[in-house]
Structure formats: structure tokens, C-alpha cells
Nucleic acid binder design. Structure first.
Lengths: 173, 173
DNA sequence: ATCCTCTTTCAGTAAATACTGAAAGTTCAT
DNA sequence: ATGAACTTTCAGTATTTACTGAAAGAGGAT
């Protein structure tokens, strides 16, 4: 029978692969999601070269995606004393991962979308034709919903894990 | 000064364009999102040919994306008596749109992800090395979180708009 | 100042994804 | 059975997105 290390390696590979596929479905590039999965399941910090080797990708690719992950707040740079190289370490707490993704997506995508909706609303503000009025109302409904969702996101993202759990219990009661 | 119809047309175009960009960021193809935006703001049902013309896309493209939108439950086919052609009409209620997207993404993406996490968990179930144990715990945390989120989604998606509003009020209290 | 180690950029290329248009398929009226 | 009106499919192509690898940059140590 296979020894534990090999089985672990296989399970980890499956996780990395699937996390990559899932990321892609949600608009995150595959490599970025894979690196994230790799680091989430890494027992130790990893260097750029280690990531390159583990995923068989080029230095440029590894570098770009590592830096993107840092900008999303999903991994952080760690330096070892005596070494000049940078190492990377993932946030492993699931709730914290969720909060950071929520915060970033809000900032990068929800806010601009709201901006557009407000513009469209403003542009159709005083229209008198039925079509104009209908358009205005549709934009308003969308804006209300998105801004509501955005506030929800804020609220949740600012909660501590424990508080969120409690709230969830209440929710399911 | 421009007349209302032209201004409305422009506002609608902006909405269609931006909705397309937003869709792309969330892993939905641009054209599909644009057709959705177009139909959401259409005063009347539209035929495939009208969609083709409005977005300047080919028949094949229009057809494929219209059918995809139908499969997501975001638009429906309408037939006019006496006409053989199919027309399309979008769900315009924002809450209903949200529910349908939530339901579909759950079915298409969350469930398979959970499956993977369970496999990875099972594969590392009885490992004894610290690495194996850590991996198992990480998978478990992720599975718990995702399955929790999935249940939340179900719950919310099964709610009526009014009930959701009430819950939200409670949430913000 | 030169070399060494590591990071960053980016032009060129590969891969993935989306789109076109024409042909084939379907359905129904005559 | 033929044809008109429409829908569906799909091979080929275009566009977008992601990746590579090499060169340039940055920051010490000697």
C-alpha cells in the first residue's frame, strides 16, 4: 500500500486542481487560485522557486500571481533572517479568507457597478415617457439591491468569526 | 437639446456595456450578461433577430446565449399567437434574479466543490503525520464553511422578498 | 565599482474562450 | 412531398486572456 506522504501529495494535488477550476468559474485566474490552494495547504512558507516547481509554471507567472494574491490580502510576504529571498504564507483561517475576498470584490467590482447604476438612474431621472420611467425604476431597483448587498457585505466582513456564528444560529432558528 | 428617446438609448447602452463588464468579472460571458441587461431594460419581449441587431452579434452567438440565459432561469421564452417565432422576456424582479443566480451557482459550482472537499477529507482521514492532520483539518474547515454558505444560500433563495427584507432589518438592528 | 542574488517587467507566444456564418435540422402550412 | 419560417449546430476563425523566458532593475556584500 502507498505510504502516507504519497497519498497526501495526491490529495493536495486534487485540491489544488479543483480550487483552480472553481476560481476560474468565479472570475479568478486559474493559476492564482492554484497558488492560493497550494499555500493554504503548505506546512511551511514557500519561495517563488518552490511555487514555480510545484505547479510547473514560469517565474513571471508565479511572480505576477503571488503579487496579486498579496494585493488581495490572501497571502503575505515573510522574510527569514539571514535570507534575502521572499517567502509566502497564506491566510488559513477560512472566515478571514472570506472577509478579505468580500472586502476586495466590493471595492473592485461592486463600487464601480453602483457608480454606473447611479449614472443611469440620473440620466433617466426626469424622463416622462413610459419607457423612460420604466428604465428609471429598473435602475433604482438594481441600485437599491446592490447597495443593500454591499452594506451586508461590509457588515459581515467586519464581524469576528464568533459573532458571525452566533448570527448564523439566529438566522437558522 | 437631445430628445428623450436618444438619451434613454444612451443610458441603456451604458447599462448594457457595464453589465457585460461586470458579468465577465464574475465568470459570466460578456455577451450573455449584455443580452440579459438588454432584456431587463426592454419594454417589450424581443426576438432573436432583434437581439442580434441591437448588440451587433451573429445568430449563433445570440442563440447560444439566449438559450443559456433560459437555462439559468433568467429569461423565458414567450410565443405570440399567430407567430411561429420565439420571443424572449427577462425576469425583472431583482430579488427573483438574485434567487435564481444563487440557486444555479449552488447547483453548478458549490455542490461539485463540496464533493472535492469531501474527497480530500476522506483521503486524509486517518493520516498520522502532522502534515496529514493539518491537511485534514484545513479541508474540514473549508468544507464546513462552504456547506454552511450553501445552506445559507438555500435558505435565502427560498425566501420571499418581503420576508428577506424583514430579516435584513433584523440583521441591521 | 563589480558581482551576486533576487525581483520585476514585458514583448512575444501559447492557450482558452467566444463568435461567425453557413449548413443542417425541425415544424408546420399547403 | 415541397417549401417557407424559424431554430440549432458546429467547423473555422477571431479575440481575449494567460504564460514564458529573457532582460532589466534593485539592493546589498566585497
Amino acid at each position: 500500500m502507498k505510504n502516507e506522504l504519497i497519498k497526501l501529495q495526491e490529495a493536495r494535488d486534487e485540491f489544488v486542481t479543483q480550487w483552480g477550476i472553481m476560481g476560474a468559474q468565479w472570475g479568478i485566474n486559474r493559476t492564482m487560485a492554484q497558488i492560493h490552494a497550494l499555500l493554504m495547504t503548505a506546512p511551511e512558507v514557500m519561495s517563488t522557486d518552490e511555487v514555480m516547481e510545484a505547479l510547473e509554471i514560469s517565474r513571471g507567472n508565479a511572480h505576477t500571481n503571488l503579487k496579486d494574491l498579496v494585493s488581495w490580502g490572501l497571502i503575505r510576504i515573510v522574510t527569514k533572517k539571514g535570507e534575502r529571498k521572499e517567502f509566502f504564507e497564506a491566510e488559513k483561517d477560512v472566515w478571514e479568507i472570506f472577509r478579505r475576498v468580500a472586502r476586495e470584490r466590493k471595492r473592485r467590482e461592486i463600487e464601480p457597478a453602483l457608480e454606473t447604476l447611479r449614472n443611469c438612474k440620473a440620466a433617466s431621472d426626469e424622463m416622462e415617457s413610459p419607457e423612460g420611467k420604466a428604465f428609471y425604476e429598473q435602475m433604482e431597483q438594481l441600485e437599491d439591491f446592490v447597495s443593500f448587498a454591499s452594506k451586508m457585505g461590509d457588515r459581515v466582513a467586519s464581524m469576528q468569526h464568533g459573532k458571525a456564528i452566533k448570527l448564523a444560529m439566529k438566522f437558522f432558528s
